[in-house]
Design a protein around this nucleic acid. Sequence first.
DNA 1: TTTAGGG
DNA 2: CCCTAAA
Length: 625
Amino acid sequence: MVFKRKLDCVSVGFDYPNIPKAPRSCRRKVINKRTDAMDLLASLAGKLLEECESSSSASSNAFEVNMNTHRKEIKQEDDDHDKKTCVVNSFSFPDDDDDDGVLERTPVCETKNVKCEEGVTEEETGGGRFEQVEATGGFVTDTCKLEEATVPRTVCGDGELKSPSCVDGSLARRQGNHTKLGRDDDDDEKLYSYHKFSNKFKSYRSPTIRRIRKSLSSQYWKQMAKDLGHYRGADAGVKSVYRKRKSCYGYNAAWQRETIYKRRRSSPERSSVVTSDGGGISSGSVSKLPEKRDSGWLFCNSSSVIFIFSCLNGPLISKGFFSCCAVKLSIKSFRIPELFIEVPETATVGSLKRTVMEAVSVLLSGGIRVGVVVHGKKVRDDKKTLSQTGISCGENLTNLGFTLEPGGPSKVHVPLCSQDPLVPIDPTNLSERSAAPPTLDTKPPQADDVDNNNHLELVPYQKEITVGEEEPSSDTRAIVPLPALEVEALAVVPLSQKPKRTELAQRRTRRPFSVTEVEALVQAVEELGTGRWRDVKLRAFESADHRTYVDLKDKWKTLVHTASISPQQRRGEPVPQELLDRVLRAYGYWSQRQGKHQGKGGGGGGAHKDADMNRGRVVESGVSV
DNA sequence: TTTAGGG
DNA sequence: CCCTAAA
């Protein structure tokens, strides 16, 4: 099989405009999948680690996270006719990467027979995705060894919100390698294909993509920061998601537009890690370290705090300085063990990469268990504080380690994602797995609970994000959505990305309309007509915070339906027939009126007093079915 | 932000 | 109730 051909296939795969336009609902699902990929991607990126050391020699104090297995091999076998089975025995996430452009944060897939190509601009790829890979002649797609996939880490020493680019020395060390790898390809044809690929991707733009990109832009990170209550930008007023929701007409657009935020909408009693433990943190008592928190890993609580936040929404790494000493730690690298991946022979290299990445991402985003090892002994008691395990402030923590294991309900000692049970992942069946992604329940922080003295800063997995930047110009700096879920890849990687409900947003509790409410609604619609739901809301439900104008519109819709079906078919608390009659009457009237005036409406006199409506048998004429 | 409709 | 295209 000629590589070039495959590459072309990849190009075709990215030809977004060729994707048949599906019905809106279908399209939406595709979009969701893309978003999931982004989430996973972000999550992958989020397994970054940060050290608090301010000295450049900090890295020498780092400890390492080691995985059980380190077989550096991908065995690839034929599976029936067209399946390739790749076993990725280990991945490592080195501590750094080059510092040249966004690729420095791009997980790099190195294989013996597969080269990593750089040169994809940030605009094209953004951070956090596998970069293009070109195969050498020896690729012919039977045994390839994947030596490591690397994810750089972030090292910042001063507690300021910084991009990973603040990593200097250690990054430089690595730069040579990858650059060389990428650049010494002398195959023009492949290069051509590669650029063709890039261009394809460049044109791979759509409002949806832009939106996703936007949501992953710095704005997003800032929002996350705000959520955590540690972002001190111009818009510092952190408000409770719940409250935003409640005041239907009060919240600002930015919030509402935040797609991500919807995932975090939740009941007010839920709070974020830092939020609920703010007091403990500032107290400087390690013993108050939260042992079990929502969506992050809060480490140390005195003069320095490392908060590693990871969820489907993306990773955050934050850090703050407090008044006393802290446990400082750095994770140079860790490895995740064996993955089992199955792809069709016809799969492109690109899709293979994406498959691997998704697998890794899925694994990282919830399918791994983290163990804490202190002095060589595994600490199983989650409630133990660090100090109780023998870790004390100021020490280099060379005696602290972690273990990561895939699969199984998490016995997380350090919750990487969520306190919710993690969905087990069977790494040997990843490609066929239909299980829902890990349940990641991110919970909105409550502004009221936020200890603003904590001043945690966030270090997004993203370059050059600036704290004060209000303009989401960072569009181009966003972790650009991986085109991983284009049709082809979806076909190849049937990973079920269907999010569980809890993963998105918590559905509001159902609150059936009372007869009184129905009456008020009918009354208002009689007067205002249909199509002025905001007015209806203001007129009749202004104080009912839980009833949005959309709710009212929906209720009206169901009322009309209810009124038009037989009483036997109706469910729930019966609505007096009298009200239903009024519903039909108003419906008919306003339908007719709208037809006549063609949206001319306006605030004119209420229909309530309109003789036409009360008198006429508009009902029949107005109601169809 | 609101409206309108499908899910 | 949710989601979202469109206005």
